[in-house]
Write a protein that binds this DNA or RNA. Structure first.
Lengths: 151, 151
DNA sequence: CTATATTGGTTCAATATCGCACTAAAGGAG
DNA sequence: CTCCTTTAGTGCGATATTGAACCAATATAG
């Protein structure tokens, strides 16, 4: 493959990834209560995985979204009683986001609700292929992430 | 790997895909004129690739978005003079979307503007890995697409 | 044929995304 | 310390997304 062939290939990869993202997001949102969408789940899941007490800005950076978007998402979670906002004792400008019991329970329930569908995929689809592509996806994500500020 | 391990793996794959989609969309939108975003490019590119004269509904299905979203996206393109809407001679309910010269030129220009970045990726990243994952991504996309109505 | 169901598209309302402008707190230079 | 810059978060306005309701045209049943 010559370098001239690379752009169409890269383009195709991003195209497939875009479609998969959309389809998988639709699946996720089908398992979420009315009024909550994928970004809400993303925050709940993030807080469970890395531990709560994180700040809105830290999460905005983690998700690569503008801070105003994160303000909006977190306020929706607060309104639904899924997280609490507290002042950050280490920095008067900043806040901390803590999961409530309801928030933790909802995250677990959504994952449990989706697992049959995931298991069906694992039966119908050759899962070893997913295992093979995961490291490449991670590498690509890291490259794009590092590349982000450079251009 | 046992089936019990599958859900976390699937989850991880979708997670990486979600992040890559967001980063690549940001790159694309950085090359688009003010007032136009990724869905606008998606439509222009679609019309170039499969030929124009397509209907809004056909494109809504192709992009897996609600028809109201496609109405909105196409109307933005019309407002910017990038496509024309004409009645569909074969079906009085329906319309056809045709590229203008400006629309075709903009699509080409955006791709040309991005190609240095793609070529840099092709140099810095092992492109053969992307070639390897593309068929798996396609297979996964097709699976999810077929699965969509089933659940 | 007529009656009914389906389909393509728009309008409207509710919520989401995000840039811009702003405030308050913190950090750094002198 | 004071001044200036940077950082975290919010308010607001413009645009985007999407479900519900609706209309017009077409397809289908009888």
């Amino acid at each position: 493959m010559t370098p001239q062939d690379a752009p169409p290939l890269v383009f195709q990869v991003f195209n497939e990834i875009g479609i998969i993202e959309q389809l998988s997001r639709t699946v996720l949102e089908a398992h979420m209560p009315k009024g909550l969408i994928a970004p809400h789940f993303g925050v709940l899941n993030h807080l469970v995985r890395v531990g709560d007490g994180s700040t809105p800005m830290a999460m905005a950076r983690a998700f690569q979204v503008p801070k105003t978007s994160m303000t909006h998402t977190v306020s929706g979670l607060v309104k639904h009683g899924l997280v609490d906002m507290r002042p950050n004792p280490d920095d008067g400008r900043s806040k901390q986001v803590w999961l409530t019991d309801a928030g933790r329970a909802l995250r677990d329930r959504i994952i449990a609700d989706m697992s049959p569908q995931f298991e069906r995929l694992a039966r119908d689809f050759d899962i070893s292929k997913l295992q093979d592509i995961l490291p490449v996806l991670t590498e690509l994500r890291v490259y794009l992430d590092e590349d982000r500020d450079r251009v």
